[in-house]
Simulated assay, not measured.
Amino acid sequence: MLRPALLALFLTGATAPAFAQPPTETVPLLREIKQWVIGCDNLRNCHALSAPSGVDEEDYSSLTLHLWHQAGPQGYLRLRFDHRGEDVDLSTLLLDGKPLGLELTQDLHIELDDQGGDPEVQSFGGIEDAAARRWLQRLRNGQRLQLPGDEAAHVSLSGLSASLLLMDAVQGRLDNVTALSRPGKGAASEVAPRAPAPVLRKFTAAAPLTAEEQAGLVAAALQAVKPEEGEPEATVGALTAQQAMTVTRYDCAAYNCEFDVSSRERQAPYKETPMDLQPLPLEDAALQGSVGYDEASGTLSYFYKQRGIGDCGGGASWVFDGKRFQLSEFHRMPRCTGVGYGDWPALWTTVPAP
């Protein structure tokens, strides 16, 4: 996942003069190109990662290459390798069967994960902009990176060049000195400025529900669903002095459930009230898989797993401002490649209320 310092850079606003090459893609964007997945958020920050497209075991890779390019004239470029499994030495990496050499691999350093990430993942990255560009220049025309003696530790470079071109198009870098795929003579100051991040409006916590309110709301929520099998379960929490949130889980499959989510009056007969939920971009279906509401922060969230280990699917969270649930973040990963949720492409970025 992005470290706090990198996240702060992403969320810092930037301005620039008029630019010559406007962005040619709308955002948010999520696209699959051969053996790569590319996601760009509402600020035009982009993340590309290697992701085998096959479903057979031989297509699995324990090695993933991530590329982040921040939008804007001074937007930083970062490259990171993640390896799942035993400790490895990336100085031995082969490109199409030949050693990469220390001139590249010496730019890698082990990243210490203090963010509660997967202890089975070893990360190498933090490369400075110039070094990352040297890597990309070398890799663009290659076919495959691999650790010697480990068939599972590989990165297919099929689709990398097209992914870099797409990121440049999203950020208005075509024919610019800052481009990753097609650099030109355009000055960095001509790159499209990064869009300002939406600022979330504050949530003001309401008085907690009384025992009587909780019991009445749970009963009303359970009565509203008709499960095909099993007993439904309902949780409730305060929204405002007059409204409460109910989340009812039912008809669970192996690792996802159906949910009925509604806002209701806190007083009998606990009638449903309109719930204004900011829609997800890309026409994604919200509130599925696993859904929860935290009344302390006014946060409603979901996490949908496409398979049991939770390395692909979607997730988002919303913050209630007293009237509306504002979309706070949104992540999607369309391919199941062993990548944890914290490293799925971010498609919606905001900043907390001041």
Rank of each mutant, 00 (worst) to 15 (best):
G308C: 10
K323V: 10
E190F: 06
T204A: 15
R78Q: 07
V225D: 13
V225Y: 09
A224T: 10
G72P: 04
V236S: 03
G289S: 03
S61T: 12
G313T: 02
A195N: 12
F325D: 03
H83A: 14
R249S: 06
L67H: 08
K323S: 13
S189Y: 00
L29R: 04
P193Q: 11
Y293V: 05
G125M: 03
E258Y: 08
R307M: 09
P281R: 02
S301W: 09
T26L: 11
D113A: 14
Q326R: 04
G125D: 04
L7D: 09
D114Y: 14
R307F: 10
F330E: 03
T105C: 09
A316Q: 01
A215K: 14
E233C: 05
Q223T: 14
Q288S: 11
E329G: 00
D150W: 11
R307P: 10
D107S: 09
A254V: 13
S61L: 06
T235E: 01
K202H: 12
V121I: 15
D321S: 01
E283V: 06
D96P: 00
L93H: 05
H154Q: 14
V261I: 10
D311G: 14
G75I: 05
A197R: 07
A221W: 05
E32T: 15
Q171N: 03
G116D: 11
P281H: 05
F203G: 04
P148I: 08
F19E: 12
G39C: 10
L200V: 10
L43I: 03
L174C: 06
Y255C: 07
E32Y: 14
Q171R: 09
N141Y: 08
L217K: 00
G72E: 04
P232L: 04
F81Y: 06
P23R: 06
F203V: 11
E190V: 05
W135L: 03
V218P: 01
E32G: 12
Q143S: 15
A16D: 00
L104Q: 01
L145D: 00
E86P: 13
L157K: 03
P148G: 13
K34H: 15
A71D: 09
L347F: 04
Y341M: 14
G298Y: 07
L102A: 15
F10P: 02
A207H: 08
D114K: 11
A234F: 02
G315V: 07
A286I: 00
A71G: 12
A254N: 13
R140C: 05
S53N: 11
G342Y: 09
K271Q: 15
Q143A: 13
R266E: 02
L49G: 08
V339Y: 04
D56Y: 07
G85T: 11
E128S: 04
E233V: 13
F81R: 02
D294Q: 13
L95G: 04
C312L: 04
A215N: 09
A195W: 11
G116M: 08
A195S: 13
K202W: 05
A14G: 08
L11E: 15
S181E: 02
P198A: 07
G298H: 03
P269M: 07
S163L: 06
T24F: 07
K98V: 13
A221C: 07
K202S: 14
N45I: 01
R201I: 06
S290T: 09
R264I: 02
F124Q: 08
E151H: 11
R324Q: 00
A188Y: 02
